[in-house]
Amino acid sequence: MKLGKVIGVVWATKKVPQIHGCRLYVVQPILENGQDSGQPLVVADPKNIAAPGDRIVFVTNTDAAQAFDTGFAPVNASVVELVDDIA
């Protein structure tokens, strides 16, 4: 899992049924000190946790599908937590 910052929204009307109603964000991976780390990527938000501007924790690869109620969705990354603070 990694830390990221939501920097944008991807609008898509035509998508596979598994991700209907799920928002897709452009996320910039960041370090704990707020510094950017690597290239932005698209992250799904199945539980509607995040909003643009938020710091989040996201999970990648096979485990990303587990964030959906069905455990079955063609996504490579999912939001799992909204970060309040890092102490």
């Binding site: 830390l3 539980k47 946790i49 924790v57 939001v79 937590e81 909204l82 309040d84 102490a87």
Partner: peptide, 10 residues
């Protein structure tokens, strides 16, 4: 290094 504090989570 640090603890991540979150209220809204999966």
């Amino acid at each position: 290094k640090k603890k991540v504090v979150a209220t809204e989570k999966h």
